[in-house]
């Protein structure tokens, strides 16, 4: 158990984030628990608006606030030796403690490499900034370091690119520069919020390849947020499936892909088109739509769309979190029976 614990880098427990708006309260993240292991990759999947990004933003405390607010739970970041931990969820989002973590311990890259850079500052200026801030580099040293960071992410002619502006770089190059920026201080965790969604397929593959190579070199952990199941299968060791602000299933990648438990996960898997299946068949879809974000459920939020829903039961009380196999947890009534009986 202690051995297992020493491998944990970041642990979110029962994290709750609300968005308090004029129209009502959106419960964006509901009791989400997840674990990121040192040097490993956690894949987070789910459809748009399921709370993936908000969970990630909570880890760096950059949830737009107001209206967003962490209303419960903890996010523990463990120190090198594995004993001491900081509860990020309890830090002042504008305070010095969280600023020391941002960019140095945990970095983030985003979906839109286009808008993630300031258009009026050079690439080098923006990459070197974290180095000047956290490592107290001189601006000349930061520039040199930015050049080698650009070289490391495979940008040709880095000594020229470093003085260019973001709009002079292509989308793929910009995402590479973004990665160089995030990794400039060798963080222990890199959060990648849909890092390849805005890129075309060939560039996607290159960026993922690059991320994996850098992970091997740096030994950092990654949290990859995506709605692309293929990326998760390829990149992640562990997977968390999100639906409507809940982490409905958590397990290692084999468990999740070989033996999905939650009906939602199974529906997702069924919806993947396959070359083997007959092509004249229509794509399988999940019936119904994602609920309105303002709606509140007494029971399981997936109830209305669930093919295995048990009336009464699923509708009335929230489903429990059941650990079906060691390390494979699911939030569903279907397994409560098995666990008990």
């Amino acid at each position: 158990m202690d051995q297992q614990k020493a491998n944990v880098l970041l642990e979110a427990k029962d994290l709750k984030v609300d968005f308090i708006l004029d129209e009502g309260t959106v419960r964006a993240v509901n009791n989400v628990s997840l674990t990121v292991k040192r040097g490993k990759t956690l894949g987070m999947i789910g459809e748009s608006g399921c709370g993936k990004s908000v969970t990630a933003q909570s880890i760096l405390r950059v949830v737009p606030s107001p209206p967003g607010r962490i209303v419960g739970g903890s996010i523990l970041l463990y120190a090198m030796n594995g004993d001491a931990s900081v509860d990020i969820a309890s830090l002042d989002p504008k305070g010095k403690a969280i600023r020391e973590i941002r960019g140095r311990e945990i970095s983030m890259i985003f979906q839109e490499p286009m808008t993630s850079f300031s258009p009026v500052h050079t690439v080098g200026n923006q990459i070197g900034e974290a180095l000047i801030l956290h490592r107290r580099f001189s601006s000349e040293k930061a520039r040199q370091e930015s050049i080698s960071a650009l070289a490391r992410v495979g940008i040709p002619k880095p000594e020229q690119r470093v003085d260019e502006y973001p709009y002079q770089l292509s989308g793929g190059m910009r995402q590479r520069a973004m990665i160089a920026m995030a990794l400039s201080c060798s963080p222990r965790l890199l959060i990648a919020d849909e890092p390849t969604t805005a890129l075309d397929v060939t560039i996607q593959a290159q960026i993922l390849e690059l991320l994996r190579k850098l992970q091997d070199e740096e030994g950092m952990a990654m949290l990859i947020i995506t709605h692309n199941l293929g990326i998760v299968a390829e990149m992640a060791e562990d997977v968390v499936v999100m639906y409507f602000g809940y982490a409905v299933e958590y397990g290692d990648v084999n468990q999740i892909f070989e033996a999905p438990l939650h009906p939602y996960t199974r529906c997702l898997w069924d919806a993947i088109p396959s070359i083997d299946k007959k092509s004249d068949r229509e794509l399988t879809t999940i019936k119904g739509n994602v609920p309105d974000p303002f709606s509140e459920f007494a029971g399981c939020p997936f109830f209305e769309r669930c093919p295995e829903a048990m009336p009464e039961r699923c509708e009335l009380s929230p489903p429990p979190l059941v650990e079906v196999v060691a390390g494979h947890r699911v939030r569903c009534f279907l397994y409560e029976v098995k666990a008990n009986g």
Binding site: T115, V120, H121
Partner: peptide
């Protein structure tokens, strides 16, 4: 987005404000 990017780098709010959004 670039404001959030700068924030995730660990910049203090006031420095961030004047370097990025005010400048633009």
């Amino acid at each position: 987005q670039y404001v959030i990017t700068a924030r995730t780098k660990g910049l203090a709010e006031s420095r961030l404000l004047f370097k990025y959004p005010v400048r633009l």
